[in-house]
């Protein structure tokens, strides 16, 4: 053990270096693909990083009041699918049986809840409270026939790709 003389050892919380900026693009509406950006955004905000989240295409389901509570998880197309604690893969054909998507969704939701990770709606409110700015894609809004009122209140605005390019200048962009 060493003894420090003079100035105490203090963590560097990087208060002076605050120009880091990150932007996530959420393009998926599957339950398992909704979480990566939310969890990373939560980590970024906790580090004091300016954080933007842009929702486009199926990612719109995450901020659409009608759909955000009903995101699903399917075994189909996921060859990595196996039961928790088991290494054998579930045959793809099983995923197509009636009720399997519901079963897989309930199971994933339970695992997420057991880890005390909030559901998508609560998560987005939390991120907004932490300072994240949420943006909706204009093209997707038009394509899906949506209005601003159809989106959760936390959404700052509906913007086009040019706007996103401008606001993400200097940001690290992560596409999910």
């Amino acid at each position: 053990m060493t003894t420090t003389e003079g100035a105490p050892v203090v963590p560097d919380f990087g208060d002076d270096a605050t120009d880091r900026k990150i932007a996530f693009v959420c393009s998926k509406g599957n339950l398992d693909m909704a979480y990566p950006a939310l969890i990373m955004a939560n980590g970024a905000l906790g580090e004091g990083i300016e954080t933007h989240i842009f929702f486009t295409f199926w990612g719109m389901d995450m901020i659409n009041k009608e759909t955000q509570g009903g995101l699903q998880f399917s075994m189909l197309g996921n060859t990595a699918m196996h039961m928790p604690g088991q290494s054998w893969h579930i045959p793809q054909g099983l995923g197509g049986l009636p009720g399997m998507t519901g079963f897989a969704t309930r199971m994933l939701k339970k695992q997420i809840k057991d880890l005390d990770i909030p559901e998508v709606d609560e998560f987005l409110t939390m991120l907004h409270d932490m300072g994240a700015t949420l943006w909706a894609c204009k093209l997707s809004v038009d394509m899906m026939g949506l209005e601003k009122e159809d989106l959760i209140d936390e959404v700052e605005d509906i913007i086009n790709v040019s706007d996103f390019m401008e606001l993400s200048e200097g940001a690290q962009v992560i596409f999910v």
Partner: peptide, 13 residues
Amino acid sequence: MALTTIAGTDIQV
């Protein structure tokens, strides 16, 4: 690990 002085007390950090 190190010892540092905080509020006049030696503290392990």
